[in-house]
Design a protein around this nucleic acid. Structure first.
Lengths: 162, 162
DNA sequence: TATTGTTATACTCTATAACTATA
DNA sequence: TATAGTTATAGAGTATAACAATA
């Protein structure tokens, strides 16, 4: 029931990104749900497994607020999939580590997600796939035009309490 | 502070889409804020201007829930930028039309957004740009793997009241 | 003085349900 | 019986502020 022409949609960069992001998250949710896992937990757990990272670093990589990270880690710890351990170099910070159970769940979930990504990108030619990923990477990393977490100076502000 | 390698990020399709979507929305919010407009209002208003569409159709095109559309249109009507008019073919439905004031605001905002899109895509080569947009369109439209609004059967359900 | 993680809380968006008026 | 839009409300996510411990 999308009444717009392909040309019109192609010009709507915001729609292309938002739709791709939302639809992929929905598909990830479906396949992860079969493993009793949700997208946010998987996202955080996989980034915790691939390197020693503090909560704050994990929050940035996972595109989550640090307060959301607190409840996510509470949940992952309660499920026995991850652990907060003190950082050896900064006693304020906590390194998030996956447990053995977490690694086991991740091995399964990671395979399912890789399969999903392959299926999604499979409708493109190899050339298209390469250029798409390179272009997105260019936009999103380093000094790319979509790399910053720029705060909106006109966003509605909350009142100060005092 | 993204501690991941480019190769790792390139394999994280979800991150690429989410980050592009969020960062573009943030940049749109910044430039639209200077015109006292927000992303959601612009998104809905521009889609209302480009064709005769009902609230439900607008909600789908704008990737918004129909209940969010109600409050968005309440706001746009109060601001004098859009109007709900009865559909001639279905007396339950309402066609959303832009007012003259709405068209004037849109002309300005549309130019600003087009400029932003051009700036963002400007870091890519013409060839990259073409392939990127074609690939996203392929994924997101028609029977593409990211076209559906598939409900997650494992999502936490709300209790029935009775 | 600034930062990490925590808690509390407010705001926004989404999702569900129930309702009406139509189809 | 089903659908468009409305209303009410619950739930999730984000954002702000204040705090303790530490840098």
């Amino acid at each position: 029931m999308d009444t717009r022409s392909d040309e019109e949609i192609r010009r709507d960069l915001s729609y292309l990104f938002d739709k791709a992001s939302q639809a992929l998250a929905a598909r990830m949710g479906t396949v992860l749900g079969e493993l009793d896992m949700n997208v946010r937990d998987f996202c955080v757990l996989s980034k915790a497994a691939s390197g020693e990272r503090t909560q704050g670093e994990l929050a940035e990589l996972s595109l989550l607020d640090k307060t959301t990270m607190v409840v996510t880690l509470d949940h992952l710890e309660k499920a026995g999939l991850a652990q907060r351990t003190p950082s050896p170099v900064d006693r304020r910070a906590r390194i998030v580590r996956t447990t053995e159970a977490g690694d086991a769940v991740l091995a399964e979930a990671g395979g399912v997600i890789d399969g999903l990504y392959a299926e999604v990108l499979g409708v493109l030619s190899g050339e298209q796939r390469t250029v798409l990923l390179d272009a997105l990477l260019r936009l999103v990393t380093h000094d790319g035009p979509l790399s910053a977490v720029e705060p909106n100076p006109h966003a509605p502000r909350r009142k100060r309490s005092s």
